[in-house]
Simulated scan of single mutants.
Amino acid sequence: MKYLLVREDDEGEDELWGRCANVEGFFVDPVPPTREVLTFRDCTPAGPLREAVSRPGQATALLGNGYVEASDDTRAGWWDLVDAVVLAHHPSRSDPSLVDVVVGAGVNGAEGGGFARSGPARFELFLGNNVSAGRCLRVDGLLAPRQAPAKIPMELIGCEPTERLLSALRRPRKWERDWAELWALDRTGQVMASPVVGLRIDGARPSVLGGTLIDITLTDGGDDRPSPAVRPVWESWYQGVPTAPNRWAPYSSQGRSAWLGLALQAGRPRRPDRSGGVHHLDGRFVTDVPGLHCAMSEALAGPGGYFGRGLDAFRDCLCGGFGLTPPFTLIWHDADIARQAPAAAVSAAEGLPSYAEEIVQVLEGAGVTVVLA
């Protein structure tokens, strides 16, 4: 059995509801949000947006994914932007020193309690690695009502249900906590991931695998499922925690991010923290931010290990609990590759350090001796 359906009982303890041989619909891409046109009014652009609106003779510019944060004196709301593109821009009519920017994007939101403008509000655009792209006085079209994205079902194949699941099948009802976790196991039985799934059952039938097994359709397979694009990463980890270096290197940025998520879940048995020693970072494949963290984790925690997947998480790991604390020495081999790779040189804003340089600053600030080789 490769999957376990697990739900918390009334005391907060994990309770097994069923074992499943396989799952159809475990790897899915979310339904993309509807594309919309938003107009950011009276903007003071910064970083990527300032660069986009200052390019002469260029009608459009790609901004990528990000989000808009809106706030007033009492509340705040957030809207995700997917694949945002600058369609047009021109000086503001109210103040020529400001800019009106027309953006096309898929829009999800609002989150954070349902922001509703009840007075003067502030809007700020963030892109990429939480990089501020400027502030605006309003965003035309942003506060329009939106339908929630469609739920994508999931098929549990070849299930051995426990009595709890059989009871739910006999007498379907709305649960107070209408969710469970689906534990995905590697071949050794270790949990690789535990995404949340909806517990509303759309149907059950004798399994296509035969015997006394059953197949179950869940109305909502949840939002935590991995993309089909990272299935090869999961297949690699299914064999067990990797023990050879640089197994992550052939994958795309998306695959490397998935690698870090599986490394975090694997959470090798905690060893007492140690300090000192010389650690070597193989920089040959550090061509993007996830690759930097894959290489760093491998240097400090070994192949398949985890030592952060973002600046905040990396800082937390340096504070202890992950087997290694400063002071120690890190020799970063082929460091020029990270400094020169466009995908790795993520700047917070013009004139500020790149992401790789920020990592070095965090290390040195924590008492690590960094040697760029």
Rank of each mutant, 00 (worst) to 15 (best):
R205D: 02
W183N: 12
G210N: 06
T212W: 02
W179P: 00
R200M: 03
G189E: 07
I214G: 12
A180R: 03
A180N: 12
R200L: 05
W183G: 09
W183R: 15
L182T: 13
V191A: 14
D215Q: 04
T212Q: 09
W183I: 05
A204E: 05
R200T: 13
S207C: 04
P206V: 06
D224R: 14
W179C: 04
W183S: 08
I201V: 14
D224V: 01
V191G: 11
P206N: 07
T219K: 13
M192L: 14
G210K: 06
W183H: 15
G211W: 01
Q190A: 14
D215S: 02
G211C: 10
I201N: 14
M192W: 07
L218H: 09
R187D: 11
S207Y: 07
V197G: 10
A180D: 14
A180H: 07
T212I: 04
V208Y: 00
L218P: 07
G211E: 02
D220L: 01
D186I: 06
W179S: 14
L182K: 13
T217L: 06
E181Q: 12
I214M: 05
P195L: 01
L185C: 11
G222T: 08
L209V: 04
T188Y: 00
S194L: 03
D223T: 15
D220M: 00
Q190N: 12
L182P: 05
V191W: 00
D202F: 00
V208L: 03
W183M: 08
S194V: 05
S194M: 10
D215K: 12
V208E: 11
S207R: 09
D223W: 10
I214V: 13
